[in-house]
Design a protein around this nucleic acid. Structure first.
Length: 796
DNA sequence: GAGCACTGC
C-alpha cells in the first residue's frame, strides 16, 4: 500500500507542474483531500514543502539544489503529455567534483525495502498477483481502459518500472477484449517476449502456453486457448503475410516502439492501414518520452497518455571538454570511483571487443602500479561474441570487499541487465552499422550516441538503488535520437516483403521516416535481377518462393536456385552458416596462431576450397561429432553460433519442404555447389587485378580479400564470388569463393554479357575508360588489362 | 597484414 501512497505524492507534484503549463493558479493548488483520507499524511507534508520551494523558485528563478532538481526531474517527466518544451537541464554537475549524497535519498528506496514484507509464506503465483497493485500503472487502470475504448489508436508513454508491458494486456483481458480476439503484444527481443509472457502467466495463474503464451522464431509457445500473446516484432510481420487483416486479434500493442527496429517501422504502416478497415481493432503504441509526439502525429494525432514509472534517481556528472584519449579518461575515472565512492559495481560502455581488451589490460596494469592499498577490483568483459561460459562471470556478484568493473558494449544498454551496478561511465560512443546503397557496402562506424541512448545508459545505474553516471561528454552536443535502422539498412528484404503483401508503390509507402530513395531503387534493381520481380515490379513465382525464407533475398535465391544443381542439402547448410550473425570462428587474442591453424584445416585436401565450402565442412564435421561442444572448443569454433546455425538450418529445411523443393545432396561436386551459390550471388563477382587486388565486374570498384578469409594470402584465384562487402580500413569482400567466369553468362545471361568477362580489349580504349571512370588513377598505374564495365554509366 | 556494435524473421 505504501507505494500507492507514494504515488499520490508524485501525482500531486505532477498536477502542480501541469498548472504551470496551463498557467493556472499554481499557488492555490493544494494536496487533494481525497488522498489525505487514504493516509497520505506524511506525503501531504512533503508535498507542501516541495510546493513552497517550487513556487519560490518560480518567483525568483534562482538556481536549484539537487533535491529540488530531482523533484523537478520527476515532475518534468510527467509533463510530456502537454508537449514539454526544452527545459534547462539542471541535474548535471561539473567535472568530477562530487557533493556527497546526504539528504539525497530518493523516496522510493525506503519503500522498496519493505516491498515484499510478509509475503514469504505465500506461493509465487499469489505473490505475483498481489504485486500487481503496487505497480504505478495500477492507479490508471480505469482511465486507461476508458481511453482505449474511446480511441482506436493510443500512444502510451510508459516509463521504466511502470508495469505497462505486463499489466495492459491483463486489463484488456479483464475488460473483455479477448472475447473478440487475441491481444498481441510485440517486443523487439526474443528474451523479453519469453520472460514477460512467463511473468504474466504467473500473475494470471495459468500455465505458460495456455491462455498466456509467446511466439518467437524457432519456438511457438501458444495454443488454441491463447488470448494474450507476446511475440517479437518480426514474428508479427511474418504473421501479417499469412493474415493481412489480423482477423484473430482484437488489440495489437507495439511495445518499445521508440527502438525503431526495421520490423516495427514496417509494422507501423501496416497496422495503421489495417486499423482503417477494421474499426474494432485497437492499437496501442508504447514509446519512450522523446518520440511520443512523433508517433502521435504519425497516427493521425492519436491521444498520448502518460504513465509515470518508478526508478531511482541517477546523479549525472559530465566533463566540460571531452578528452582526446577517452580510454585513458575511462581508466582514471574507474580508479577515482574505486578510491572515493561507496561500494557498488561500475559499468563502462565501450564500442567493441578491441576497446574492451585494451581497457582491461591497461586497467589491470594501473591497479598493479597502485599497489595493494585499497580493495581489489574484478574486471568482467561482456560482448555478444564472447563465448557464453565467459559471459556468465558478469552475473556473479562480486566477492565481499571487492568491486566489479563491467566493460560492456551496447549489449548492456538494452539487451541484458546487470544487477548491482551503481556507477555508469559513459564515453558517449557506439558502433553503428550503415549500408551505402550506391556501393553496396556496409561499414561499422564509431559514432556519438543519441540523447535517448545517453538516458538509457544512465538509467542502468539506478536499477536497484540511487546511481551515478559519469558522462565524458556534454549531453548538449548529442542528437536527440539515433537514425532509425530503416534509413541505413539494405532494403532488399524489406521491399520483397512489401511486394509480397501486395504493396506496389514502395516509394509512396507510408513510412514514418522514409528511407533514401536510391536505397529503395537499388533494392528493386537487385530483386529484378534475381528474378523476384518482373519488369513492372510485380512479384514473380520465384519471388513468392523466396519470401518464405527468413533470410536475405540473395540467400533465398541461392536456396531456391539450388534445386537445379541438385545440392539443396549443402546449400541450406551454407545459407544457415552465413545467416549466423557472428563469426563462427573464435579467435582469442592470446591464441591467434592456434586458432588460425585450426581454421585452415577446413580448407585442406581439395583445391579451391572457398570460404563457403569451408563453412559447409565446419558444419558437417560438427554434425559428425554429434554436435559436440567439446569439439567446438578444440577447433576454436563458437558453439553458440553453431547451435544457432543448426536452428536456422532446421527451419530452412522445413520451408524447403513446404515450397516443394526436393532435398538433394551432391557433396563431392563442388562446382555444382558453387554454381548454386552463384545463382543468388552472381551480382557479387570480382576479378583479379595485376597488383593482387580485385575489381568488381559490375559497378567498378577495387576490393580486397578479407584478412579472415581462407583465401587471404593464398595463391589468388582469378575470379571470385563474395557474400558481402564491408568497409573497414579497406573495401573487403567477406566470405569469398573461386568461380569460373563463363558460369556468370550461363547462370545470369540477363545480367552479364560476354564483354563483361573478356579481358582482351584494346589497351588505349581501356585506359581512357579507366581514367574517366575513376579519380584514383594512381592505384592502377600498371593495371592495363583489368576490366571496366562499360555497360553502366560510369560515375560522374 | 587486419578485424565482427546489436537485434530480428
Amino acid at each position: 500500500m505504501r507505494e500507492v501512497i507514494e504515488f499520490r505524492y508524485k501525482r500531486a507534484l505532477y498536477e502542480l507542474v501541469k498548472k504551470t503549463e496551463d498557467d493556472d493558479d499554481v499557488e492555490g493548488y493544494r494536496f487533494p483531500d481525497a488522498y489525505d483520507q487514504e493516509g497520505c499524511i506524511d506525503q501531504k507534508k512533503r508535498f507542501d514543502v516541495a510546493k513552497e520551494r517550487y513556487c519560490e523558485r518560480r518567483r525568483s528563478g534562482r538556481v536549484v539544489t539537487e533535491q529540488e532538481a530531482w523533484e523537478d526531474h520527476q515532475a518534468q517527466k510527467a509533463r510530456v503529455r502537454f508537449g514539454a518544451k526544452d527545459k534547462k537541464q539542471v541535474v548535471d554537475g561539473y567535472e568530477f567534483v562530487f557533493d556527497d549524497l546526504t539528504g539525497f535519498v530518493e523516496e522510493s528506496s525506503e519503500a522498496e525495502t519493505g516491498k515484499h514484507r510478509g509475503c514469504y509464506s505465500k506461493t509465487a503465483a499469489e505473490k505475483a498477483r498481489e504485486g500487481r497493485e503496487f505497480l504505478p500503472i495500477h492507479g490508471y487502470r480505469e482511465e486507461l481502459l476508458k481511453l482505449i475504448e474511446e480511441n482506436q489508436v493510443l500512444v502510451i508513454v510508459g516509463e521504466t518500472g511502470s508495469g505497462k508491458t505486463t499489466q495492459i494486456p491483463q486489463y484488456l483481458q479483464e475488460a473483455g477484449y479477448t472475447k473478440r480476439g487475441k491481444i498481441g503484444c510485440t517486443q523487439p527481443r526474443r528474451v523479453a517476449a519469453m520472460s514477460v509472457a512467463s511473468r504474466v502467466a504467473q500473475e494470471v495463474g495459468v500455465k505458460l502456453g495456455h491462455e498466456v503464451g509467446y511466439s518467437i522464431r524457432f519456438e511457438d509457445c501458444t495454443s488454441e486457448k491463447t488470448v494474450i500473446k507476446y511475440m517479437t516484432d518480426g514474428m508479427l510481420l511474418r504473421e501479417l503475410l499469412i493474415e493481412p487483416k489480423l482477423d484473430s486479434y482484437s488489440v495489437i500493442i507495439i511495445d518499445e516502439a521508440h527502438e525503431r527496429t526495421l520490423s516495427t517501422d514496417i509494422l507501423f504502416a501496416l497496422v495503421k492501414d489495417v486499423a482503417k478497415v477494421r474499426p474494432d481493432l485497437r492499437l496501442i503504441i508504447s514509446s519512450a518520452t522523446l518520440e511520443a509526439k512523433k508517433f502521435s502525429e504519425y497516427f493521425d494525432s492519436a491521444r498520448i497518455y502518460l504513465i509515470p514509472g518508478r526508478r531511482y534517481p541517477v546523479e549525472k556528472l559530465f566533463r566540460k571538454c571531452p578528452e582526446p584519449d577517452y580510454l585513458e579518461t575511462v581508466i582514471r575515472t574507474v580508479v577515482q570511483i574505486h578510491q572515493t565512492e561507496a561500494i557498488g559495481d561500475i559499468l563502462v560502455f565501450l564500442t567493441g571487443q578491441e576497446e574492451i581488451e585494451t581497457v582491461e589490460t591497461n586497467l589491470k596494469r594501473r591497479m598493479m602500479d597502485l599497489g595493494t592499498k585499497g580493495s581489489e577490483i574484478i574486471i568482467c568483459p561482456i560482448y555478444s561474441n564472447l563465448p557464453t561460459p565467459l559471459q556468465a562471470k558478469v552475473f556473479e556478484p562480486a566477492p565481499k570487499g571487492t568491486r566489479k568493473v563491467v566493460l560492456a558494449t551496447n549489449i548492456a544498454e538494452t539487451s541484458l541487465t546487470i544487477d548491482g551496478v551503481k556507477y555508469v561511465i559513459d564515453p558517449g560512443y557506439c558502433k553503428i552499422n550503415s549500408y551505402n546503397p550506391r556501393t553496396g557496402m556496409e561499414s561499422l562506424l564509431v559514432t556519438p550516441i543519441s540523447k535517448a541512448s545517453a538516458a538509457q545508459r544512465a538509467g542502468r545505474s539506478g536499477r536497484t538503488g540511487p546511481g551515478k553516471c559519469f558522462r565524458l561528454y556534454n549531453i548538449k552536443d548529442l542528437e536527440p535520437t539515433t537514425i532509425p535502422e530503416i534509413q541505413r539498412a539494405n532494403l532488399a528484404s524489406v521491399v520483397l516483403t512489401l511486394k509480397s503483401l501486395g504493396i506496389q508503390d514502395v516509394f509512396n509507402f507510408d513510412f514514418m521516416d522514409p528511407p533514401p530513395e536510391n536505397a529503395l531503387l537499388k533494392a528493386l534493381e537487385l530483386l529484378y535481377a534475381l528474378g523476384a520481380l518482373d519488369e513492372i515490379g510485380e512479384i514473380t513465382k520465384v519471388g513468392e518462393r523466396m519470401v518464405e525464407f527468413p533470410v536475405d533475398p540473395m540467400l533465398s535465391k541461392m536456396i531456391v536456385g539450388s534445386e537445379k544443381y541438385k545440392c539443396s542439402k549443402e546449400i541450406i547448410t551454407i545459407a544457415a552458416m552465413l545467416s549466423v550473425g557472428n563469426s563462427v570462428f573464435y579467435r582469442p587474442k592470446n591464441q591467434q596462431v592456434f586458432a588460425d591453424k585450426a581454421r585452415m584445416d577446413f580448407y585442406e585436401d581439395t583445391e579451391n576450397v572457398g570460404d563457403h565450402i569451408a563453412l559447409l565442412r565446419v558444419y558437417n564435421s560438427w554434425k559428425e561429432e554429434n554436435y559436440s561442444t567439446q569439439w567446438c572448443c578444440e577447433k576454436f569454433i563458437q558453439s553458440k553460433s553453431m547451435k544457432r546455425a543448426r536452428d536456422i538450418r532446421d527451419q530452412l529445411l522445413g520451408l524447403l519442404n513446404k515450397i516443394g523443393v526436393e532435398l538433394t545432396s551432391n557433396p563431392n561436386d563442388l562446382d555444382a555447389i558453387k554454381k548454386a551459390i552463384l545463382a543468388g550471388f552472381f551480382p557479387h563477382s570480382a576479378k583479379l587485378q595485376k597488383n593482387g587486388s580485385y575489381r568488381r565486374v559490375k559497378e567498378p570498384q577495387t576490393v580486397y580479400v578479407h584478412p579472415n578469409s581462407g583465401l587471404f594470402g593464398a595463391s589468388p584465384s582469378k575470379w571470385l564470388v563474395y557474400h558481402e562487402l564491408v568497409l573497414t580500413t579497406k573495401e573487403y569482400m567477406r566470405h569469398t569463393t573461386e568461380m569460373k567466369p563463363e558460369w556468370l553468362i550461363e547462370i545470369a545471361p540477363h545480367y552479364y554479357k560476354l564483354k563483361d568477362i573478356e579481358d582482351t580489349r584494346p589497351k588505349k580504349t581501356q585506359r581512357r575508360i579507366e581514367e574517366a571512370s575513376t579519380s584514383k588513377v594512381d592505384t592502377n598505374k600498371k593495371t592495363r588489362t583489368s576490366k571496366v564495365d562499360t555497360n553502366k554509366k560510369s560515375k560522374r
